[in-house]
Every structure is written in structure tokens, then in C-alpha cells.
Nucleic acid binder design. Structure first.
Length: 891
DNA sequence: CTGGTGCCCTAC
DNA sequence: TTAGGTAGGGCACCAG
């Protein structure tokens, strides 16, 4: 029976079939897991791919023919164990110019690392030798995560396996055993084709455990499964014997068959806990029992799968980054929320409140997690209710943040699996695009880490000194995609860099790009770089999605609109990732000259424009990397702000107020004209300067990366950068105070500003502020070491750090702590060293805080506000004392 | 009290 | 022992 359909690939792996001793040759089958457009889960068994890599002799190449010595060496390689064949040579571009490259086919992918090692010992240069075998399917065939399949059905979930008939069929097709999916399809690489991206009707499984603090056992569990195709959700809850809870949870995973597994902090808590409990409840030899407890992978519950250390039956932590298991993708809602929202605090209830303020009833804290054993003994029903709710909330969070659709878009643009987009590194995304192009253009792909180590840091962007104080009518100009534009404009690429060691130096008179650092790159007319070409394609792709988005908006089609929005956003993210990867010290296609040339050109460009503007008499107030804040030439007496009372007066028809408003509008218009004119005049082909914002007022106390502005064009809003209002390690009393002060500052209300600051500092010093407004929060690192957290690897002096002491206190109290999380605390006595702090206890009245150090908070508040009030004549000291001391020099 | 160091978090 | 970068402000701690 044939299968025809479109699927979205979640993840994949390979299965090696070694020779059976009856003359069959070894082969490798790819197992690709995903879900079809029609909603079935699918495992594709793909045959026809062989693991290969490339080699080139390190010896000198005369440029014409292969020496007999090299030919002999090739024959030696052919006879090595594990090698099937060597073909070639093909001429490829390497960092030493054109070289002959041979393609080596290995028997199995897992043999490649050792072959690589021994060949490089016998003076071979290795290329394309560290690319995961699964990736070859996508790289060699132009595929992304959305595939059209035309294959043969070898198994269906509902079919009985009488006499192991189905198992045999799957194994015959090269499978490892019956897969835990709806349909298993066998096909050849040729039976696959690329298909248009579509929203895959994924299933997401979210779960939560309640555990005993005393015994570390699982008390109860809940799960919620969402079908993205229909929006339907199913709920499950479990209590009773611990082993039966784990078994039932596993049964639900296997029967609902999700593509994505989520939960809140499952990476660091729930999954490790399930893993620990499985190890306690079943001996390692008893794989059957273990499979029943935690065999969540999309594969057969058999011994071979239980033994696999990577993407097998059991979820495993591959690195510190992410969990892997066969056929599914693990996505922690905590991590996603943290990345997208940067919340002040990271508890589930805090994040839920942030996202769904109107449903505050839904996420009220009604169970005290720190006294879970007691709660479970006294009111298990409420605890289970709470558990069910916390299993559902991660689905709401992922939905609100559109995480799945965004990752899917990244996967589609970068042409990788969903799992790679969700959990992979940036370099994997870039690799996916760059290696395709390298293969197409006969450019050898070096191994990761083969580049010379970068010594020290490269110099980054230029940041202009800020003039402290208020500045009226500032036009903000930005270079559009500055680093990508520079890479395109100057043809910066691994393949265009001119190295003195290369044999084919540019001929006399040939045009080259010379960076301010002296590094040289070939002109695009001689050889266009891969990276510039890719970036141009991505820029074009983004334009296409942007105009499709516009069209969908006009047509009133929200589904198409959000699709193109996600796609254009994914393209943007990807484009901006290029520089970082190429400037890193270890990426395969990098060289230290690439990154430093890009930033050198950037500094050169921006400094040139700044000095030209200043020569023209336009003062530059500030500039950071790709932006310029420049004074507009408006009348010096033109008003830049309208005070509250003047606004009222104008509405009441006051003549003077009306007139002032007219002059304000004129000033605004002249700023807009100026901004647009400057943008046009300073734009070049590959360096487009845009008039991004118009500010009626700009304020900074004189520190780089810290400023405030009143945006009046193209929209009206307050723009704040760097200040405490933006920081998640500040306390809310400070941030709200500062924000209000900024509105005073921008409205030219200096007196009100100082008065307000004084009042707020005073209230704090007198202890009239609620402790809940004084919560400090900082992230805390640490490494798990046999059940304990070790802080000494991450901190030179752990116990002097407030966040470490708070983390330790949390652990002591039986509250959760996992590495990287933010911990909240209140300073109770800062006169001692180190200062005394107390954790903020979410579920207790007033956070469990009885008193705080008012003097400490008042001083810290005054220090922050003082930097601003100083521009209006008041220092921090004066804010605390509440009056301006008449000093010796004040007469 | 000062300057150096370690750390966090932010702007690009 | 794992994989985007640098510039920068500011706080707490600690030695002298």
C-alpha cells in the first residue's frame, strides 16, 4: 500500500544495519519522525543514503596532476577498515586555494569520527567530516522541515502484530522495531520532495508533577494535551502508587503521541525527577520496567532502544542545553517565557499574571508548594486541582507567545528540523544554509574548530560619548541591517578573504576590498562570496514575506498574515545571526579577519558620518554602533515640550497656548524634514541610512547606553534605554519612581521632578513602602552534583553573593532551585558585610518578610534617582538628607 | 575611602 | 569540554 502526503519533520536519527553474514552489505536507514498535514504521526524509513566525507592531501599541490605518491595513499585509504570506496578527485576551493578533494564513503556513520582521526594522523585534510548524518538528507536534497512523501506503508498503529508480522515488515524496511506512531512508511530518498511550508497540526503534551520534599517521590501528576490542528485539549491526572503514576503518564504519552513535550521548568525539574525516580523504582537491568515508567520515545519498548544513549526510548539530557528522545521535541515553557518576556520574576504564577492579567483567579496560589507533604496529606484534591492547572498553563504560555509557529518558521527558513530550530544552536542554523551553498559551489567544508584560534577579542561597535542633560529636537538615524549590509557591500566571506599564503593572489590592477584593518577581500566581480549571496537572498525573501503580509492584511486574512509575519521575523533573526557566528572563534567557516573587518568598516562608516554632520554644524548628541542621534536645526526658542497645564489651556482656547502648540508642530515638521533629508543624503547602495525616529526631547545623565526620549515621529511614545526601568534586577519601587521622573524630565518639569524624588526617597527611608515593591531578583548559576548544587564552579566567592545565599536558603526551605533561575530577595541589613538578605516567599503573607533595611533601599533609590536629579541641581546625598546643604562654595 | 575585581544585565 | 559577538553601566565585595 502506498502512502502519499505532506509531513512536518520534528526530528530524526539513523539506524545502522550491519551485515547479516549472508552477503548483505551494511546499510544505513534514516528514521524521520513528524506529523502529516492530515494529522497522523509518521515515521519515515528512508533508504539510499551513505555516509561520506572528504579528504585532501596536506602535501604541496602543483596545480596540475596527482602525484603517484598521492595515488598510492588513496589506494591505502580504500583498503582501510570501515571504508567502502574513495572517489574523485574534484577540485574544491579550500583556505589554501583550489585543491583536489576525494570523497570517502564509510560503512556506517558511527565509524566516521575514528576514520577522521586516523586519516588526519596520516596527513589528510578532512572536509565535511563532522556533519550529523541525518543533516545530509536535508543538505543534499534541498529539503527543509516540510516534506512531500510518496512511499510504502509498512506498519500502522492499529494493525495487530500477530506472529510479529508487522515487526518483521518494519525490520525488513530497515527499521529498528515497531515505531510508536500512526503510520510507518518506507521510502527512498527519491520518493521525497520539498513542499510548501504549512502549519503542522502538532500535538503538544504538557505535564506537571507534585513531589514530596521529604522523600523526593512523585505524589501526583497531571497532563494536558493540545491538538494544534483543532484546538482541542485533553486532560489527565494521576494519583496513587508512585510507580503507577509514572506508568500511566507514560501510557498517556504513548497513546496521545505528542510531537512536542512541554511544562514549566521541566528541563531542570520534572524530567530529571522522573529520570531519578525511574532509576530508583527499577534496576538498570530491568529495561522492561524502566520502559513502562519512562519510555516516552516514539520507538518500540525494547532493549536496544532502552540502551541507546541518544534520541532513544528514554528522554536524556544530551548536554546542559536540552533533553532528547526519539521522535519528539522537548520545549520548556519556562525557558521560552524567560527568553521572550524577560520577566522580573520567573515563577509560573508571575509569568501567567503577566500574560493573562484578566484571569488572575485562574493562577492564584492556593497550595503551599514548600509544605507539599503536609498539603498532600490534608487536602489532596486541591493539590491535584492545582497540579492540573499547572499542567495546562504552559500550553497557554506557548500559545500566547506563538512559540511553536515561530520555531516552525525558523525551521522553514533555515531548512532544519523543528527540533533543531527549537533546541539547536545558532551555528546549526547557519550551517544548514551555508553548507548547501558550499556544496553547490565546490567549496570544501572545513571541520568545526579547524580555524586558528582567535587571540583575544575583536574590537566591536563604536559608542559615542553622550552629552549630559536635555536636548531638544533630536533626529534618530539608523543603518538598516548594518552588519549584513557591510558583509554584502564589501563581499566579506570565508571564500573571498585574500590570504598571503594563497597561491592565486589577485592580479595587478584587480579591484579588491581593503578593510580599515588592512584585511583584503576579493571583489564580487571576481568571486562573489557565499555569505553575501545568502544574505542577499534572505533580504529578498524577507521583502517577499513583508509584501505578502501587507496583502494578507488588506485582504483581511489573519492566518496568512501571521504566517508571513512569522516568516519575515524568522528571516530577520537569521540574518542578524550571521555576524555573530562568523565573528566567533570556532565556527567552521570563520577567520578572525572576518569579524574584525566587519566591525572596522562599521566604525569607519559611522565615525565618518558623525564628523561630516558636525562639520555641517549638526551636533551629534549620541551614537551607538549603527545609530546616530543628531540635533535638528530648529529655532533655538522653539518649544520642545508642552506642559500638562499648557495642554489644558490650549483645549480651553488659550491664545498663548495655541500659539505655542503651533510653533511646536512647526518644529516637529522641520525635524522630520531634516531627518528624511539627512537619511537620503547619507545613504549609499549597501549602507542605507534610515530616519527611524524623531524625538522632541532627549535626556541622558551622561552615561553611554542610558537615555530617555520622547518619540513624536512616527508614533508617540516614551523611549527608555539602559536605565533601571529596563532592568530585571531592580526593584519595582525604584522603576516606577524613575519612570514617573522621566515623564517630568521630558515635560520640562524640573521642580516637580525633584519634589517627587524627594518625597519618594523620604517615604522609603521612613519605612512607609510595602516590601512587595522592594523585591530584588537576580539569576543564580550553579551545577548539579549528585543531588546537590555546587556553586564554587561558577562563583569565585559564592557566599559573598546575595543570590547564592538566597538560593541556598531556598534549597534549605525545600523550595525549588535550578541553575540559571532568578531568585527573589529582600535586603534586611546592609550594614553587615556581606549584606543580610532574605528570600521572598511567594506563597506567604508579605513574602514572609517582617522588616527590611529602609536606609539601604533609600540610599540605593537615591543613588539611581540622583544621577537624574543632578541634571536639575540635586545630588543623591541631598535627596537622602532631604535638603540642599549650604556649602562653603555656594555663595 | 579608594581602586580593583567579579558579576549581572543591558544596548547594539 | 562546548559552541553567535563586543561595549558598557553599575552594584557589591574586599584589600589596603
Amino acid at each position: 500500500m502506498t502512502y502519499k502526503g505532506d509531513i512536518g519533520v520534528v526530528s530524526g536519527r539513523y539506524h545502522s544495519l550491519d551485515t547479516d553474514g549472508q552477503g548483505s552489505s551494511p546499510r544505513t536507514v534514516l528514521e524521520v519522525f513528524g506529523r502529516s498535514k492530515t494529522g497522523e504521526s509518521v515515521c519515515l524509513l528512508i533508504s539510499g543514503l551513505k555516509p561520506t566525507f572528504e579528504i585532501s592531501p596536506m602535501s604541496v599541490w602543483n596545480g596540475t596532476d596527482v602525484s603517484p605518491e598521492v595515488q598510492q595513499k588513496i589506494r591505502d585509504v580504500e583498503h582501510l577498515n570501515g571504508i567502502v570506496s574513495v572517489t574523485g578527485p574534484t577540485m574544491k576551493l579550500t583556505d589554501l586555494g583550489q585543491r583536489p578533494v576525494w570523497r570517502v564513503t564509510a560503512q556506517q556513520p558511527y565509524l566516521v569520527p575514528n576514520l577522521r582521526k586516523s586519516l588526519s594522523k596520516s596527513s589528510w585534510q578532512i572536509y565535511s567530516g563532522d556533519i550529523p548524518f541525518l543533516n545530509r538528507l536535508f543538505l543534499d536534497n534541498g529539503f527543509g522541515m516540510h516534506l512531500s512523501v510518496n512511499g510504502t506503508v509498512v506498519d500502522r498503529r492499529e494493525q495487530p502484530d500477530d506472529d510479529y508480522e508487522r515487526t518483521r515488515a518494519v525490520k525488513k524496511a530497515g527499521g529498528a522495531g515497531r515505531y510508536s506512531v500512526d503510520i510507518t512508511v518506507a521510502c527512498d530518498v527519491g520518493d521525497l520532495s520539498e513542499c510548501e511550508p504549512f502549519p503542522v497540526p502538532f500535538r503538544i503534551f504538557s505535564f506537571d508533577l507534585e513531589t514530596s520534599i521529604e522523600h523526593e517521590t512523585v505524589l501526583c501528576a497531571a497532563a494536558c494535551v493540545e491538538h494544534l490542528g483543532t484546538g482541542v485539549r485533553e486532560e489527565f491526572s494521576f494519583r496513587g502508587e508512585e510507580a503507577s503514576i509514572l506508568e500511566n503518564l507514560t501510557l498517556v504519552v504513548r497513546s496521545t503521541d505528542p510531537d512536542i513535550i512541554t511544562g514549566y521548568n521541566i528541563d531542570n525539574f520534572d524530567l530529571p525527577r522522573l529520570n531519578d525516580r525511574m532509576q530508583v523504582l527499577a534496576r538498570s537491568k530491568d529495561w522492561r520496567k524502566r520502559a513502562q515508567l519512562f519510555g516516552w520515545g516514539r520507538v518500540e519498548q525494547c532493549e536496544a532502544e532502552a540502551k541507546r544513549t541518544r534520541s532513544g526510548l528514554f528522554p536524556r539530557r544530551q548536554s546542559t542545553r536540552a533533553w532528547t528522545l526519539a521522535g519528539r521535541s522537548v520545549m520548556d515553557a519556562w525557558w521560552q517565557a524567560r527568553m521572550a518576556l524577560r520577566p522580573q520574576r520567573e515563577t509560573l504564577s508571575f509569568v501567567s499574571n503577566l500574560l493573562f492579567p484578566e484571569d488572575s483567579e485562574k493562577h492564584k496560589m492556593d497550595v503551599d508548594a514548600s509544605k507539599m507533604d503536609e498539603e498532600w496529606a490534608n487536602r489532596p484534591d486541591e493539590v491535584l486541582e492545582y497540579c492540573i492547572r499547572d499542567a495546562a498553563l504552559p500550553l497557554d504560555i506557548l500559545g500566547a507567545l506563538q512559540v511553536v509557529r515561530r520555531k516552525e518558521a525558523v525551521a522553514a527558513v533555515a531548512k532544519v528540523t523543528f527540533d533543531t530550530a527549537a533546541n539547536g544552536s545558532t551555528s546549526q542554523l547557519i550551517d544548514s544554509l551555508v553548507i548547501r551553498l558550499a556544496d553547490a559551489e565546490n567549496i570544501a567544508v572545513p571541520l568545526t574548530g579547524s580555524a586558528e584560534a582567535k587571540e583575544g577579542q575583536i574590537t566591536g561597535g563604536y559608542v559615542h560619548e553622550v552629552d549630559a542633560g536635555l536636548h531638544p529636537w533630536i533626529a534618530v538615524l539608523d543603518f538598516k541591517s548594518m552588519y549584513p549590509s557591510i558583509m554584502i557591500g564589501h563581499n566579506i566571506c570565508y571564500t573571498t578573504r585574500i590570504d598571503p599564503a594563497q597561491p592565486d593572489q589577485p592580479i595587478e590592477g584587480q579591484e579588491v576590498h581593503v578593510a580599515p584593518t588592512g584585511a583584503r577581500f576579493r571583489h564580487q566581480s571576481v568571486r562573489k562570496g557565499m555569505v553575501p549571496r545568502l544574505l542577499e537572498q534572505l533580504m529578498h525573501q524577507r521583502d517577499v514575506h513583508k509584501s505578502a503580509l501587507k496583502q494578507a492584511k488588506a485582504d483581511g486574512d489573519p492566518v496568512v498574515e501571521s504566517f508571513h509575519d512569522a516568516m519575515q521575523y524568522a528571516v530577520k533573526i537569521l540574518m542578524n545571526s550571521f555576524y555573530g557566528v562568523f565573528a566567533s572563534g570556532f565556527y567552521r567557516f570563520t577567520h578572525r579577519d572576518l569579524g574584525s573587518s566587519i566591525t572596522a568598516w562599521a566604525r569607519h562608516n559611522i565615525k565618518a558620518i558623525i564628523s561630516q554632520l558636525e562639520d555641517e554644524g549638526h551636533g551629534v548628541v549620541y551614537s551607538d554602533t549603527d545609530s546616530i542621534f543628531v540635533r535638528s536645526p530648529v529655532d533655538s526658542d522653539a518649544p520642545s515640550s508642552i506642559r500638562e497645564d499648557e495642554y489644558q489651556a490650549r483645549l480651553d482656547g488659550d491664545k498663548a497656548a495655541l500659539q505655542k502648540y503651533e510653533r511646536w508642530k512647526q518644529a516637529k515638521q522641520s525635524m522630520i524634514d531634516f531627518g528624511l533629508e539627512i537619511a537620503e543624503r547619507y545613504s549609499r547602495d549597501s549602507a542605507v541610512l534610515e530616519f527611524e525616529k524623531g524625538l522632541s526631547v532627549f535626556f541622558s545623565h551622561g552615561a553611554k547606553k542610558r537615555y530617555v526620549g520622547q518619540v513624536v515621529w512616527p508614533s508617540e511614545e516614551m523611549l527608555i534605554r539602559g536605565y533601571e526601568t529596563q532592568r530585571t534586577d531592580s526593584f519595582s519601587y525604584l522603576t516606577t519612581t524613575m519612570k514617573k521622573m522621566f515623564t517630568h524630565a521630558l515635560s520640562d518639569e524640573g521642580d516637580e521632578l525633584v519634589k517627587y524624588a524627594l518625597e519618594r526617597v523620604k517615604a522609603l527611608r521612613e519605612g512607609r513602602v510595602d516590601a512587595s515593591e522592594l523585591i530584588l531578583a537576580k539569576s543564580c548559576k550553579g551545577r548539579m552534583k549528585n543531588g546537590k548544587v555546587d556553586f564554587t564552579k561558577d562563583y569565585a566567592n559564592p557566599d559573598s553573593m546575595a543570590q547564592v545565599r538566597v538560593a541556598k536558603a531556598r534549597i534549605e526551605l525545600g523550595l525549588g532551585f535550578t541553575s540559571g533561575m532568578k531568585v527573589s530577595y529582600i535586603v534586611t541589613d546592609a550594614t553587615q558585610r556581606p549584606m543580610r538578605v532574605q528570600p521572598w516567599l511567594e506563597m506567604e503573607e508579605n513574602g514572609g518578610i517582617l522588616q527590611y533595611d529602609g536606609q539601604f533601599y533609600a540610599e540605593r533609590l537615591a543613588a539611581a534617582l540622583g544621577r537624574i536629579t543632578e541634571a536639575f541641581g540635586w545630588t543623591a546625598k541631598e535627596l537622602v538628607s532631604g535638603n540642599k546643604q549650604t556649602s562653603l562654595f555656594s555663595f
